[in-house]
Amino acid sequence: MNSEYLVEVKDLKKWFPVRRDFSQVIKKERKFVKAVDGVSFGIKKGEIFALIGESGCGKTTTAKMIMKLHEATAGQLIFENNDVTNVDKKRLLEYRKEVQMIFQDPYASMNPRFKVRDVLEEPLLIHKLYADRDERLEKMKDGLSKVKITPPEEFLERYPHMLSGGQRQRIATARSLMLSPKLVVMDEPVSMIDLSTRAEILYMLKELKNEMDLTYLYITHDLSTARYFTDRIAVMYLGKVVEMGTPEQIIDNSLHPYTKALIAAVCEPKSGKVNIVKEVPIKGEIPSAANIPQGCRFHPRCPYAKPSCISNPEPKLIEHNNDHFVACDRYKEI
């Protein structure tokens, strides 16, 4: 089973300790924000896997644990059949070469004092890939032409603030590809980009994936682009995956009440909806991860919740059919 996955996370958890007041210290009470609370999934080689959820659902924290920017509290991270949950400095540096990240805000992800040249050169310098300056330059130009930034010579001398949003994200992409990684984690890579160029970037990312044999982990809150862009989707709620499957399974045949609510809430550019008040099946907002409800964690907002949802232990992610997983005890009834 293992071999089909490039990356696999098993019961991954990230609990951030909450600052305690004096009485809590005395009583030895410990409280945690359970940002990620037992997440398991695997990403196949060559796949685009999406993590979808509202803000605060733990999707970015999961990505950062895979990037090893956050230390996991518990669980396992497996990369190419090797456990990389706890690794020493040397292996970490090797791992960093294989796994790269593209951030939501391309401008913030580049040092404003760095020219495009410095931005692209950094990974090469850190991993000491080419000793020769000219060789590095060649590699950088090559990287820029891959993301369709032409002419590369001209752009190398520019600062990030002189570029448009789309160009910046292309540069950020080029940087992440400088080391020829196997997995690229993308945290909302197009949400800050103008609609008219958004599709162009996504198209380019798809092309690069095929060209360079990459695997993507795509973090987003936007179901619509995920449908177009990804192969598999995992929907997260409050630190847990509640449903997982292909875009068709998730969007057209959703099983979990939370997924259904998300889909119902999405706006569509269609006429004739102005005077209709749309049905939003769930009330309220996502609760704090410091105070996770008992039983099924979605029950306080779930329109179908029964007392059993509270008293029963938390539902596990079970397979409905054909790799379509759902974590709801009553999904068949609703």
Binding site: T197, Y228, I251, V266
Partner: peptide, 24 residues
């Protein structure tokens, strides 16, 4: 027209999204 074409639609399974070349 182009902008509307670039807007992803949840319930339509499009293979390619349209985009407008160039920048504003």
């Amino acid at each position: 027209q182009k902008l509307l074409g670039a807007t992803p639609k949840l319930h339509e399974n499009v293979k390619e999204l349209a985009f407008i070349p160039g920048t504003p």
